[in-house]
Each structure stands twice: as structure tokens, then as C-alpha cells.
Simulated assay, not measured.
Amino acid sequence: MPRHHDAAVLASPRARLSVERMPTPDPAAGEVVVRVGAVAVNPIDWVIQGTGSVTYRWLPTPAVLGSDVAGEVVAIGSGVTRFRVGDRVFGLATGTDRGRDSRREGAFQEYTTLLEHLTAPTPAGVTDVQAAVLPLGVSTAACALFQPRHLGLTVRDPADTRPRERGVVVVWGGSTSVGMNAIQLARAAGYDVVSTASPRNADLVRSLGADVVVDHGSAGAVDELVAGIDGRPVVGAVALGETSTAGCIEVLHRTGGSVLAMASTPVSLAALASRRRLFPAMVPVFARLGLKTLLLNARARRAGIRAAFVWGTSLRDDEVGRRLWGRLLPEWLADGTVRPLPEAIVAGDGVGAIQEALDRQRAGVSARKIVATL
């Protein structure tokens, strides 16, 4: 490994990413060092860049952002048993989480460290670009579906042939990155799925296994979902998108469902993130965010619905992460049960292209994910 490498660095709060030299990390126990082949960007990356001094106050700068990594193992730490040097892998980088070191563990650099238990082998025939779209999306979906504080679904053993009623999972926002993965994971675990999408993405969402797909922009979306559920037991809902929570609450209330996993805020931070100065523009934005969240939670409680926000990297510290990355994801990718989606759009090559990738993601992407190759 080289002693130093290039990284896309957030040098100070709200700055644009700059290319800087960083020390190449050595792996600690339970870690692998990866030579990065591709990274994908997520909305949380530009949220941190634009509002992190408020929303991620624990993250010091200079910082290396990014969660989605695919590449090749170049070093392994003590205790690592699942990987060897030379293995192609992809994984979830958690460097921007509280208590982590983003300069060692952030994705947006030529070499980074990944936790062994949040890393999986890249299947033959899957490129780094394709694999890089998965980590945060599939992890967030798994948290929503499988963590006990959210839907708490169990994964049906294919060898278990005993009759079991298939419950229904509602995924509002099926063409989002998390939504595509939530549909696939829920189906793989043995559940039916009903979902929403724009008309142009409806066929894609159906191809992932949703047996009912309605237009999320339709005034009758809730009625159509309830009709599509057709009396089947609803085990819970995953809300994706600014306006998704209210719709999910109504669907659950009318079908007897009682658990809601909220994976999106009810107010977008996109406009605020692009403002030259956070203050005073942040005051009304966060006031609306707080009020809408309070009202939606109150509405859920009145309907007898348990609602909680999903934190996509929280599986780092629980059995869901180890099971997903250690067994389920490798198996389901290998046999085609799960496809690496959304489809990637390559924004450019090199760490210098990552800022452009962030800009393109913030400008708006539908059913695709922006990737940079390194």
C-alpha cells in the first residue's frame, strides 16, 4: 500500500470538496483496508456538506464523507476471517457516524477501511460500479424491515415448508434507492409488498416483486393501496419521501397495521444546504421540520401506530448488520434474489469527480444512483 493517497476532503464546514493527500490507514482488528474502485453518493452526503455544522455537529473537519464503497482488499486486520488480500468486496463505510474517524473510514478516498462485518464479497459478474450502489440503501432498508424497533420481520427459511400467512409490507417510495432494496429484501424474507412510484417507474418497481404499484402523486393513492391489500394482514410500512409519512399512516390506520419506519424527513433540506449562509435561513426550515415531525408522530399515536425514524448505519452495532452482510446479502446476490439497484450513472473518474457527483445527485435523480470511479 502507498503511504499516502488522494481523498475528496470537506476541509471546513460547508466547503466544496477538495482533493488532498491523506495517510493511508493500517487496518485495526476486525477491519479491512480497501483500494476503492467506485463510490456512490447519497442525499445524506450533501446534507452533511451543507448543514453538517448543525445536523452533524459531532463531525470535525477536515472530514471524508461517503458511505458506499466497492473495491479490492489490500490489507486485513487481526481477527478477520472472511476476506483475504485480493478479494473484491463492497461495504458500508460509517466514518461520519458519531465516535468514528471519517479520515480513516470515509468512502470518498482512494483507500479506506471497512468493518469486516459490514462488508460482503462482490459476486462474479458484478462490477465495482454496480456493487457501489448498494451499501447504504440496502442497509437502511434492512434496518427498517428487520430491526426490532422497526418492523422486526423474520426471514423465512426456504427449507421450512410449513404453511405461513404472508403478511404485506407497504413501501411508499418504491423507486428510491432504499425503496428498491426494501421491496427486494421483504420479498426475499417471505412477505408480499405493495408500493408507490411515478408512472414511468412503475414497471421497474413491479419487476422487483411489488404486486401492487400505485402512482404516489395520485389523490387516490391511499384508496388504491388499501384496495390492493385486499384484506391481507399488514405487518408495517416504510415511508420514503417528504410526503410519504402521512400516506403511510392512513394506509396503516385503514388496514390494521401498527408499525411505521420513517426513512425520510418531512421537510427537504436541499434548498437550505445550497444557501450561502445557514443563518437565518435555517430557523424557519428547522421550525417547519420540527413541527411537521411532531404533528405526524401525534397523528400516528392517535391511530395506534408505533412510528420511529430509521438510521441506516445503526446496524453496525447489532445482529441485523452481521446477518445481512455476513450471510443474507451474499446469498441473495449470488442466487439473483437481490439485484444491485438502483442502476448507476457514472459522473466521472477520480476523487476530483466526487463533488460533481454530489451536485448531480442534489439536482435530482429518479430511480438511478450517481457513482464516481476511482
Rank of each mutant, 00 (worst) to 15 (best):
M1W: 03
V41D: 03
R103H: 09
R187Y: 09
Q49P: 06
G290I: 01
R232Q: 11
G179E: 01
I345F: 06
K369N: 07
T81I: 01
R254E: 01
V346Y: 14
I370R: 01
V283R: 08
V32Y: 06
D68M: 10
D157T: 01
H216P: 04
P199I: 07
L145T: 03
L240D: 01
V251C: 06
L153R: 12
M180T: 13
G312E: 04
A261T: 11
L294T: 08
A219Q: 13
D203Q: 14
V171N: 11
A93N: 12
E250S: 15
S218N: 10
E20Q: 15
A363K: 13
T113M: 04
A107G: 10
R323L: 13
A93E: 05
P25H: 13
R316F: 01
G321A: 03
F83T: 06
W332H: 10
A344P: 15
A271H: 14
L145I: 07
G312L: 11
Q109N: 05
Y191V: 11
V194R: 00
C248K: 09
R162A: 15
R206Y: 05
R301D: 02
A347R: 01
G304T: 06
G50C: 00
Q361A: 01
I44T: 14
A144F: 14
S198F: 00
E20S: 14
D157C: 07
A300C: 07
S175K: 04
G52D: 08
P340N: 02
R276N: 12
S314V: 08
A141L: 07
R156N: 09
T127N: 05
A8G: 10
L260D: 02
L204S: 10
A188H: 09
T55D: 00
H5T: 11
G137I: 04
I76P: 08
L10S: 03
V214Q: 13
A70K: 07
V222I: 12
G30P: 14
P340S: 11
D349F: 03
V9T: 13
A308C: 00
V85F: 04
V251P: 08
A270W: 06
V54Y: 00
V36A: 07
T176K: 03
G95T: 09
V54P: 00
V47A: 12
G352V: 00
I183H: 11
W332Q: 08
D335Y: 12
A107Y: 05
T176G: 15
A307L: 08
A189R: 07
G352P: 10
T337G: 14
G66P: 08
C143E: 14
T337P: 09
V346R: 02
G304Y: 08
T96V: 15
L252C: 05
G37T: 02
W332S: 08
P342G: 07
N42P: 12
G91Q: 06
A197F: 10
V214N: 09
R164T: 06
G352H: 02
A239R: 10
V285P: 02
D160W: 10
P135F: 11
G190D: 14
E356D: 15
L358H: 02
R288S: 15
T245F: 04
S53A: 15
L272P: 02
D26C: 06
H150C: 06
V212Y: 02
L252D: 06
D223Y: 10
G95H: 08
G220D: 15
P121D: 05
A334T: 13
G257W: 09
D157M: 09
P43D: 07
D192M: 10
A344C: 11
